[in-house]
């Protein structure tokens, strides 16, 4: 069926309206952050991203948090999920339920309830801002779980592991050298989503009085509006690039699968 002329015009008009609604605030950020007090243009606010000591410290903190969270998530989740699939399939529902639970228990609720746990963490481990990693791992769990689960469902993990075991491989070899390389794209997606989520995290850090990137951006908003808008735009841009890269990783996987069949 060929679409009617009216429909095609309406369609383009609607798409333009949506485009305007989503683009104008983003363009406003660019315009606002490059304003000069005299009325011209200047990149001062963007230079502040590296010059302002508080801001650059916060950027480094958030990047470190992202790195640690990805590491913690991978160590905790990947072996567990593979193990459940290979050896304890009856725990599948339990692990899935626990991983998706943070969607129902919002970050705001966790932060209210975690004061006791964190007073122990601060006592036993340290009171550095980097201890936020522990709770961030929980926060990224639902999204990471979905990415890794999709990749695991795409391969026959049980057969692969039986083949490896019968050739004399130990369980560490099976997980590290047989299964993980086969679900690499899922692991990568999980890592990207986690990085984006941690870089955007505000709720928990601000309510526990730690300073990560978003907290500093919000604080700057009160004194240096242009710098905080520039930092917001930069963070958004960085997250976009990451998630855009993610969509290509996912596409590569699909393309490969189509070639196989």
């Amino acid at each position: 069926m060929k679409p009617s002329y009216t429909w095609r015009v309406t369609r383009v008009a609607l798409l333009l309206l949506f485009g305007a609604f989503f683009l104008v605030p983003l363009l406003a950020m660019l315009d606002f952050s490059t304003r000069d007090l005299g009325g011209g243009r200047s990149g001062e606010a963007w230079l502040d991203l590296v010059r302002d000591p508080d801001l650059s410290a916060a950027i480094i903190t958030s990047l470190l948090l992202a790195l640690l969270t990805v590491g913690g998530m991978l160590v905790l989740l990947v072996p567990t999920m593979i193990w459940v699939r290979l050896r304890v399939p009856r725990a599948t529902r339990l692990v899935e339920f626990l991983c998706l639970l943070p969607l129902t228990i919002p970050a705001l609720v966790i932060v209210v309830g975690m004061r006791n746990v964190y007073s122990w963490v601060n006592y036993l481990v340290s009171d550095s801002v980097l201890t936020l990693t522990f709770v961030y791992v929980v926060l990224v769990l639902p999204y990471s779980y979905r990415a890794i689960d999709a990749a695991l469902s795409g391969i026959d993990a049980v057969t692969l592991s039986e083949a490896a075991r019968s050739l004399g491989a130990g369980w560490f070899t099976v997980i590290g050298r047989i299964v993980v390389p086969n679900i690499w794209s899922g692991v990568l997606s999980a890592a990207f989503v986690s990085v984006a989520l941690v870089l955007g995290e505000f709720t928990i850090a601000s309510l526990t009085n730690y300073e990560n990137l978003q907290v500093v951006i919000a604080l700057l908003g009160k004194s240096e509006a242009r710098t905080s808008v520039a930092a917001s735009a930069a963070a958004l841009l960085f997250a976009s690039v990451l998630l855009m890269a993610l969509s290509y990783v996912g596409r590569g996987r699909r393309a490969r699968k189509e070639n196989l069949t």
């Binding site: 989503f22 104008v24 605030p25 983003l26 406003a28 950020m29 315009d31 606002f32 952050s33 999204y143 989503v193 984006a196 989520l197 870089l199 955007g200 995290e201 505000f202 709720t203 978003q214 951006i217 919000a218 908003g221 509006a225 905080s228 808008v229 917001s232 735009a233 963070a235 958004l236 997250a239 976009s240 998630l243 855009m244 993610l246 969509s247």
Partner: peptide, 22 residues
């Protein structure tokens, strides 16, 4: 799809400042 992913998940403080700038 990509832009939706970013705006739906990243959100937060950034969007508040986008609208303040606008």
């Amino acid at each position: 799809v990509s832009v939706s992913g970013v705006l739906a998940q990243f959100g937060g403080v950034t969007l508040a400042f986008a609208f303040i700038a606008m």
